[in-house]
Simulated scan of single mutants.
Amino acid sequence: MVRVIFIGALGRSGTTLLERVLGQLPGVCALGEVVHLWDRDVRDDERCGCGTRFSRCEFWQEVGDRAFGGWHRLDVPRLLELRDAVERTRYIPRLAVRGGDAVSDYAWHYRRVYQAAAEVSGAEVVIDSSKHAALAYCLRYSPEVDLRVLHVVRDARGVAYSWTKEVARPEADGDAMTRYTPTRSAMLWNAHNAAFAVLRRRGVPTRRVRYENFMRDPVAVTRSLARFVGVDPGPMEFLTTDSARLTSCHSAAGNPMRFTVGPVPLRRDEAWRTSLPPRQRQIVRALAGPLLSRYGYLRSQ
Rank of each mutant, 00 (worst) to 15 (best):
E124C: 00
P205A: 12
R267G: 00
V125P: 04
G289E: 12
V86P: 06
N190R: 04
D105T: 14
C50D: 00
R53F: 00
R184G: 13
E87T: 05
S275V: 02
R43I: 04
V261G: 06
W163D: 07
E33W: 10
L82M: 09
T178G: 04
S162L: 12
W272A: 08
L298D: 11
D65T: 07
L79V: 13
V264C: 07
E144A: 08
D155V: 13
E81W: 11
R148S: 04
G230R: 02
H132A: 14
P278Q: 00
T15D: 05
Q61M: 03
G51S: 05
C57S: 06
R299D: 08
L10T: 10
E62K: 08
E19Q: 13
H132T: 09
E270H: 07
H192Q: 14
R43V: 03
D128E: 10
R157F: 02
V63W: 14
C57L: 04
D84E: 15
C249D: 11
Y110H: 11
D269L: 12
L139T: 03
Q24S: 06
V125T: 05
V21K: 07
N213D: 15
W272D: 07
V209G: 08
A107I: 12
R216N: 01
L287N: 01
R200V: 00
C29N: 12
Q301Y: 13
S293I: 11
V120S: 02
S275Y: 09
S300G: 04
K165H: 13
Y295F: 09
P290T: 09
A186K: 06
I7K: 06
R20F: 05
V145H: 08
K165D: 06
R299S: 13
P93T: 12
R111Q: 12
E46A: 02
S130C: 11
R98Q: 13
E171K: 01
V219P: 05
S130K: 15
R66G: 14
N255Y: 15
T181R: 10
K165N: 09
V264N: 09
C249G: 14
T241V: 03
I92K: 00
R223C: 01
G8M: 09
R216F: 01
G262V: 15
P235I: 03
W189Y: 03
R3W: 12
A9V: 10
Y211I: 01
R227Y: 00
V28A: 04
D84A: 12
Y137H: 13
G203Q: 04
V126N: 15
W108E: 15
A271K: 15
P265C: 01
C29S: 14
D41G: 08
L79E: 07
Q282W: 05
P235R: 10
D39M: 10
A271T: 07
E58Y: 02
R94D: 10
L298T: 11
G203M: 04
W60D: 02
Y161W: 02
V284R: 07
V264Q: 15
V229Q: 08
G64Q: 10
L287T: 05
R98F: 01
R98I: 02
A160F: 03
D65P: 00
R43P: 02
G158A: 11
